[in-house]
Simulated scan of single mutants.
Amino acid sequence: MARSHRRIEISEEDDQRLRELETSRHTCPKVRLRASILRLHRQGWTVPQLSNHFNRNHQAIHNDLTRFSQHGIPGLADACSPGRPSHMTPEIEQFLR
Rank of each mutant, 00 (worst) to 15 (best):
M1D: 00
M1H: 01
R3Y: 04
R3D: 01
S4G: 05
S4T: 00
S4P: 00
S4Q: 03
E9N: 09
E9M: 07
I10C: 10
S11D: 09
S11N: 08
E13H: 08
D14T: 04
D15C: 12
D15K: 10
Q16W: 05
Q16C: 07
Q16F: 12
R17F: 05
L18H: 03
L21G: 02
E22I: 08
T23F: 14
T23N: 11
R25S: 14
T27Q: 02
T27R: 04
C28G: 10
C28M: 10
P29K: 15
P29D: 15
K30Q: 14
L33Q: 11
L33E: 09
L33H: 01
R34A: 11
A35L: 02
A35Q: 01
S36W: 02
L40E: 15
R42T: 13
R42L: 11
R42C: 10
Q43S: 14
G44M: 10
W45V: 13
W45P: 03
W45I: 08
W45R: 15
T46I: 05
V47P: 00
V47I: 15
P48S: 09
P48C: 08
P48I: 10
P48R: 00
S51W: 02
S51M: 09
S51E: 02
S51L: 03
S51A: 14
N52Y: 10
N52W: 04
N52F: 12
H53D: 12
H53Q: 14
F54W: 09
N55Q: 15
N57H: 12
N57Q: 07
N57M: 04
H58P: 00
H58R: 09
A60M: 09
H62E: 09
N63C: 11
N63A: 12
N63E: 13
L65F: 02
L65Q: 02
L65S: 05
T66A: 02
T66S: 05
R67A: 07
F68V: 09
S69I: 09
H71N: 04
H71I: 00
G72T: 06
I73S: 06
I73Y: 05
G75Y: 06
L76Q: 05
L76A: 04
D78I: 06
D78E: 13
A79P: 07
P82T: 04
G83L: 10
G83S: 11
R84A: 15
S86L: 14
S86F: 10
S86G: 10
S86K: 11
H87F: 13
H87D: 15
H87Q: 15
T89Q: 09
T89N: 13
E91K: 06
E91Y: 03
Q94D: 08
F95D: 12
R97D: 07
